[in-house]
């Protein structure tokens, strides 16, 4: 990236990078710690609760990964998920599966608009999505009148997420399928190559004719789509829509992507790593309950784990100036 690489501790950072497997090692160690305290953690019931808890974070984090690979950020995903949950309940109650498809289409379009504004107007994604965050939360509060709206009994278009597929919660399986599709797109479509090119050396990518507006718009549209999908899973689980339903999911989702080993500065990482990150974040969240850590200390530990995990896994050799 830069011919003037002045990272003084380059040697130290290269020693830390053991082939990108560190996030997975960290996950195994964390699971080991929890199991040592409570062997029942690896039981079916407990693993199912991990899967149920992980499903919405997984969908959000999968959608965020391409945006972060580009070196951008999307702060609006959780607010969009909450907005979608409000719309889903009313549209699914009225129009069933068509309503659900409509919400997904709308969220995808909203994401695409954000991507186009960000890249055509050349405004940092941090700001555009910060504005979108306010816009979506205002709209969902207004649309729901700041109350929870219940889902009508037996909406098959949504309630499937509570079924089990081969013993695994269907919402989580859905997340895995989306992860696999996005993973294949990133791996095999030109779009996927462009993500890495723009994330690691955008001027060079632009010089070689990468269609940056389309690449960005597609990445943010995907984020919008997975936000709506996360809303489906959340509404299925709680059976109501609420303007604050997903507000606690933004930070875990970003943390999951980054803990998995995708660099926040772009160009390094991938969708597969995000799965590891999502499981790490969920194991930390659930493991603290299992181990019996004082609930008031959970935020401290969660914050510390994010910092430690990124400190261990970030590939500093590929970052010249860290902001």
């Amino acid at each position: 990236m830069s011919p003037v690489n002045i990272s003084r501790r380059k040697g130290a950072s290269q020693r830390l990078d053991i082939g990108g497997y560190l996030p997975a090692v960290l996950l195994v160690v964390l699971v080991g710690l929890v199991v040592a305290r409570d062997p029942a953690f690896l039981g079916v019931a407990s693993l199912r609760s991990v899967a149920v808890q992980a499903a919405p974070i997984l969908l959000l984090a999968v959608g965020l990964t391409p945006v972060i690979l580009l070196g951008g950020i999307d702060l609006s995903v959780a607010a969009l998920t909450s907005l979608c949950s409000v719309l889903l309940v009313s549209w699914a109650n009225q129009a069933g599966i068509t309503g659900v498809a409509g919400v997904v289409a709308l969220a995808t379009a909203a994401g695409a608009v954000v991507g186009v504004v960000h890249s055509v107007a050349q405004v940092p994604s941090f700001i555009v999505t910060l504005g979108a965050l306010g816009l979506y939360s205002g709209l969902s509060l207004e649309a729901s009148d700041a109350t929870n709206t219940p889902l009508a009994e037996g909406s098959p278009a949504i309630s499937w997420v509570n079924d089990y597929f081969a013993g695994i919660p269907a919402g989580f399986v859905f997340g895995l399928i989306v992860l696999a599709i996005v993973g294949l797109m990133v791996r095999f479509l030109p779009w996927g190559r462009y993500l890495y090119a723009m994330g690691s050396a955008e001027p060079a990518a632009l010089m070689s004719g990468v269609p940056k507006i389309r690449v960005r718009a597609a990445a943010f549209a995907l984020t919008g789509m997975t936000s709506a999908m996360a809303a489906i899973v959340l509404v299925g689980r709680t059976s109501f829509g609420s303007p604050t339903l997903a507000s606690g999911l933004l930070l875990p989702a970003i943390a999951a992507v980054v803990v998995g080993g995708t660099a926040i500065s772009g160009g390094v990482g991938g969708v597969g790593r995000t799965l590891v990150g999502v499981l790490t974040v969920t194991v930390v969240q659930i493991g603290m309950v299992v181990i019996g850590i004082d609930p008031v200390l959970q935020n401290v530990i969660f914050g510390a784990v994010i910092i430690v995990a990124v400190a261990l896994t970030i590939d500093r050799a590929k970052l010249s100036v860290i902001k």
Binding site: I254, V258, G303, K323
Partner: peptide, 13 residues
């Protein structure tokens, strides 16, 4: 040498 976004996200929590 961690991105400030991540560090301060952690200290927020």
């Amino acid at each position: 040498r961690l991105p400030s976004l991540i560090v301060t996200l952690g200290t927020w929590f």
